[in-house]
């Protein structure tokens, strides 16, 4: 292995990452959202329970992806890669449910 006195790369990578304060704020937001989603689960809102629970989970996931995983600060290509899996998952969900919802299997 070639040993070499390297230039510090922190300058190059530092601008791609958020400030420390951002991490703590995001963490705080995640905790609040967790408290909220647990609280909502004790209230009977009918079909809205599912909707709210999944919406809060989605917001939490997006926060983690954008800030903890640095996508907010990354190239467009990273955005595409990060989104691809979820887009394809939506295809699977949409097309599969299209059968079940129109078949009458779910009573």
């Amino acid at each position: 292995m070639t040993q070499q006195t390297s230039q510090p790369t922190s300058e190059r990578t530092a601008h791609q990452a958020p400030a420390l304060r951002t991490y703590y704020l995001i963490f705080l937001a995640l905790m609040l959202l967790l408290a909220l989603t647990v609280a909502v689960s004790f209230v009977d809102l009918g079909a809205f329970n599912e909707l709210i629970a999944l919406a809060i989970a989605a917001v939490k996931a997006v926060l983690v992806i954008l800030f903890f995983m640095h996508v907010r600060y990354s190239s467009r290509l990273t955005w595409v890669f990060a989104a691809a899996g979820f887009v394809w998952l939506l295809i699977m969900v949409g097309w599969t449910f299209s059968d079940y919802l129109s078949r009458g299997w779910m009573r």
Partner: peptide, 22 residues
């Protein structure tokens, strides 16, 4: 290619509306 898999299931008992879309 990801949007057409249901054409393998035309006679399986899946929803006829789904079959039409697929």
């Amino acid at each position: 290619g990801f949007l057409v898999w249901g054409h393998h299931m035309f006679v399986s008992g899946q929803s006829i509306y789904s079959s039409l879309i697929f």
